[in-house]
Design a protein around this nucleic acid. Structure first.
Lengths: 200, 200
DNA sequence: GTCTATACGACGATAGAC
DNA sequence: GTCTATCGTCGTATAGAC
């Protein structure tokens, strides 16, 4: 039985592989997914996969970078459409919660996977573009006087840390309601932790 | 060449294996560590390992539960020696920072490893005993009136989330100084996020 | 560029002597 | 309870026809 994929554009094949890979990695993880699995799921033969990518790690790397790019684009949107750090950071948390609800396994992959175990040359997630953008927003808030002028790392961690823990708890199944119901109360605490006190 | 370990107590052998396993898993991860590696590192033969543990997963499970137990004991100590939620939670963060500095790979294992990939029957880390104890301390603070009476999950996430993000950033190498230098500033923000406002 | 068939090594796990 | 030797499986990756 021959495969269907004869004479399709290389870009198309690449996309088939990456889509299947994302699906499988988020379901079973990198190490529990074989190249054979990817071939089956994507309807692309092993030979073709190795033609387009150097090896299994190469597939993972391409897929991972696609993910980061998508996330960065969403963050750029926020930066364009909101002016204050207050609005921007609030929107970021809402975005993260939304992705968690709509594509939980994708978020699980981004949160949990210790990329260095299978992508030893990839930068750690914290220095990746999305996190940089998130920190930039905090820095901007310090310039405008919205946020206390403390260590940037401390401020970012405290501002986003609560939301991120909510996400992992939700993914672990110990929060039952949709995260979107918690946006306001989480945001209230998070913002208070580093905001310049207005009422003095 | 024969191994040295003839006629030692079974408990001793078990410990040799578990120590080596922790070492290897924190260095290379579960999937990058073979049973052969464990045998070599622990100086215990493969046959003996399989005599004491059901399979590779059994070794991981025993080691993981030992870790959780150690952590729980430290938290119990804190609960015994401090009375207020303020002091207890502060001590918890200090403890976590200290472990991060002294045994970074161990902390890396606890933070990053998605246990469900290799321990599918193990409860997620967030519902494990240490995290339960940490939430109990927050609940206690609500009873004493130190902490705002909001959703327990939200409060816990915001109180500990900032510190936990500092830990992952430190492990990822994007914080260069010892975390212990940040205890006070992190704590100040974290506590402010959920404390009952005293100054009104 | 796509495919099938296969090489080859490493892995988890077991058998059975001591 | 400890060990060595080995089995069978499955993984990644390649060779080579179309």
């Amino acid at each position: 039985m021959t495969k269907i994929n004869t004479r399709k554009s290389p870009e198309h094949t690449r996309q088939l592989v990456l889509t299947a890979t994302l699906q499988l990695f988020t379901e079973k993880g990198y190490f529990n997914t074989s190249v054979r699995d990817i071939a089956r799921e994507s309807q692309v033969s092993i030979g073709s996969i190795y033609h387009h990518f150097k090896d299994k790690e190469g597939v993972a790397s391409a897929m991972y970078n696609d993910l980061l790019k998508r996330m960065s684009e969403s963050l750029d949107d926020i930066q364009r459409n909101k002016d204050s750090a207050y609005e921007r950071c609030h929107a970021v948390i809402e975005l993260l919660f939304k992705v968690t609800e709509e594509e939980p396994r994708l978020m699980e992959f981004m949160m949990y996977s210790k990329h260095r175990e299978f992508l030893p040359d990839e930068a750690p997630i914290c220095s990746a573009q999305p996190f940089k953008l998130m920190r930039e927003m905090v820095a901007h808030g310090m310039e405008t006087g919205e946020i206390q002028n403390i260590d940037l790392m401390v401020a970012s961690s405290c501002l986003y840390g609560g939301a991120i823990r909510m996400i992992t708890s939700r993914l672990d199944g110990i929060i039952e309601k949709s995260l979107l119901e918690y946006v306001d109360s989480v945001w209230e605490c998070s913002w208070r932790s580093i905001a310049v006190n207005q009422q003095v």
